[in-house]
Amino acid sequence: MITGHKPTGCNRCDAPRPLDARGLCDRCADIVDHRELQARVDEARERQTQRDLERQREFAHEAEAVLGGDE
C-alpha cells in the first residue's frame, strides 16, 4: 500500500469523495477522460492517414497504367 494513500479517496490523487465509478474525483476524471478522448482522436487520424496513403497509391498505379506503363 502506498504511504499516505487513503483507501476511500481518489485512486489518482487521494482527494476525498465524491468519486465516480472508477474511483476518481471530478478533477482527475476530467483529466483521464480528456487524455482518453485525445488518444482516440489521434488513433482515428492515424487510420485516416493510412487510408489516404493507400488511396494515393491506388490512384498512382491506375494513372501509371493509363499513361502507358503497360507498353
Rank of each mutant, 00 (worst) to 15 (best):
H61D: 11
A15M: 08
E64S: 01
E58I: 12
F59R: 03
E71T: 13
A29E: 03
T3Y: 15
V41T: 12
G9E: 04
P7I: 14
D52V: 00
K6N: 09
A15R: 04
T3C: 13
T8A: 11
D26T: 11
V66Q: 11
D33I: 04
E46C: 00
G9N: 02
L24K: 04
A29G: 10
L67Y: 05
E54C: 00
E54W: 04
I2Y: 14
Q38E: 10
T3M: 15
L37W: 07
A21F: 06
L19K: 04
A63D: 07
E62N: 09
A39Y: 05
E64L: 02
R12M: 01
D42P: 05
E71L: 14
C13Q: 05
P16M: 09
R17H: 08
V32M: 07
N11H: 12
L53E: 08
P7Y: 07
E71I: 15
Q56H: 11
A44N: 09
C28Y: 00
E46M: 00
A44W: 11
C10A: 06
D42F: 13
Q50M: 01
E54L: 04
R12I: 01
C28Q: 02
L53R: 06
E71M: 14
C13K: 08
H34Y: 13
R45Q: 08
R12A: 03
G69H: 08
F59T: 09
E62D: 05
G68V: 03
Q50W: 03
A15G: 03
E54M: 04
G9W: 01
G23F: 05
Q50K: 04
R47E: 09
N11A: 09
R55Q: 13
I2V: 14
E43D: 05
P7L: 13
A60K: 12
R17L: 12
Q56S: 07
A21E: 13
A29L: 09
A21M: 14
C28L: 03
A21R: 15
E64A: 00
R57V: 02
Q56N: 02
R35K: 00
C13A: 13
L53H: 05
Q38K: 06
V66Y: 06
A44I: 10
D30G: 02
E46I: 00
G9A: 05
R27H: 06
Q56L: 14
E58F: 15
A63H: 09
E62Q: 08
R17K: 12
E58Q: 15
F59S: 10
E36W: 00
R55C: 13
I31P: 03
R40V: 01
R17N: 06
F59N: 11
N11P: 02
G4K: 06
D52R: 01
A21Q: 14
V41H: 10
T49G: 07
T8I: 12
D30S: 03
I31R: 02
P16D: 11
H34M: 15
D14N: 15
D30Q: 06
R22F: 05
L67S: 01
C13G: 05
P7V: 13
I2R: 06
A29M: 09
A29Y: 04
Q50F: 02
Q48E: 08
G4V: 06
P7A: 14
H61E: 14
L53C: 09
L67Q: 01
P18M: 07
D42W: 04
A65E: 14
T3H: 15
A15H: 10
K6D: 10
G23Q: 07
L37P: 03
D33N: 14
D26V: 05
D20N: 15
E43V: 06
Q50G: 07
L37T: 04
V41K: 13
R22C: 02
L37Y: 10
